[in-house]
């Protein structure tokens, strides 16, 4: 009984995704399941079409900058929280992970407002809205909490004696971090990198506020979707699924999926 119920639940979870993958190989002009003929014409289309290419490159560029940035800033914060002791530390931690529970729609419109302000303010006009650098800033804010929690979980399993041993052997504070701490929390750092990359790559609502012409992939999918249900959506979705699945496998091999469970707690 329990197994049957679970089987149904997992069909519910995966069936739509499987259908997308099958649909993406249609050779027809329109969606229809099962496709009447198969081929890769829509893959060829999304890979050569300028709009799709641009939005894909935008997403890739943004996520590739966000991931290391979030890993570094989040990693420093996680280390700082783990190693220091001061009044109000718990409050600082709550503050640093608050973007996780704040509705992204609110954060998106608020950042849009700041962007508009930067666009028009005299003296230091920055062109924030519709610019990739501002997407990076926004996405970094969204992903840092995930980095902090992932890296923080790694730090908690780290034996502090190892760092003390290094220090007593003559390693300074920063040398200890460089030679001992970082190598030993490598899995957590990789986890933070990949989570941040995926979250940035998939991010919709905040970018939706900021973007007009400079679209990212999710926004391009959305606007295509609102216009018509074209098979190109299935193809690009399948490509995104493949990328995500690959990165998820890397995470799993590093034992970091468990720490994602911790994020949710």
């Amino acid at each position: 009984m329990l197994f049957i119920v679970n089987a149904l639940i997992f069909i519910f979870i995966f069936a739509p995704l499987v259908i997308v993958v099958i649909q993406s190989f249609t050779n027809e002009n329109h969606m229809g399941f099962p496709p009447e003929s198969y081929g890769v014409r829509w893959y060829a289309y999304v890979m050569t079409d300028d709009d799709w290419q641009n939005s894909f490159m935008n997403s890739l560029i943004v996520a590739s900058i966000v991931a290391p940035l979030s890993m570094i800033i989040g990693g420093m914060a996680a280390l700082g929280l783990d190693r220091s002791d001061f009044r109000g530390k718990q409050a600082v931690f709550s503050y640093l992970i608050a973007p996780m529970v704040l509705p992204h729609i609110v954060l998106g419109m608020a950042l849009f407002r700041i962007g508009l302000f930067l666009d028009t303010s005299e003296g230091f006009t920055l062109n924030a809205t519709d610019s990739l650098w501002f997407y990076v800033v926004a996405h970094t804010t969204i992903t840092i909490p995930y980095a902090i929690i992932t890296i923080g979980a790694s730090l908690q399993t780290l034996d502090r004696n190892l760092e003390e041993a290094a220090q007593i052997l003559g390693a300074s504070y920063f040398k200890t971090i460089f030679f001992i701490t970082i190598p030993l929390i490598k899995s957590g750092l990789i986890g933070a990198f990949i989570f941040s990359f995926i979250i940035s790559f998939d991010e919709f609502i905040v970018t939706y506020f900021l973007a007009t012409f400079n679209q990212t992939l999710p926004i391009q999918i959305y606007s295509t979707l609102m216009f018509q249900l074209e098979p190109s959506i299935a193809s690009i979705s399948t490509l995104m699924l493949a990328l995500t699945a690959l990165l998820t496998l890397v995470l799993m091999s590093r034992g970091q999926l468990v720490s994602f469970g911790k994020i949710i707690k």
């Binding site: 997992f10 979870i13 995966f14 069936a15 739509p16 995704l17 259908i19 997308v20 649909q23 969606m31 229809g32 399941f33 989570f195 995926i198 790559f201 998939d202 919709f204 999710p218 999918i221 959305y222 979707l225 249900l229 959506i233 299935a234 979705s237 995104m240 699924l241 995500t244 699945a245 990165l247 998820t248 799993m252 999926l257 468990v258 994602f260 469970g261």
Partner: peptide, 30 residues
């Protein structure tokens, strides 16, 4: 671990992708 993978991996899939997948299933031509 396999179940954990099955539960978490969709979470790492774009909401847009998952919703458009449902359109293929539930829509008038779904």
């Amino acid at each position: 671990n396999i179940i954990l993978f099955c539960v978490i991996s969709p979470l790492l899939t774009s909401i847009i992708v998952r919703n458009s997948a449902w359109m293929l299933v539930l829509g008038n031509q779904g």
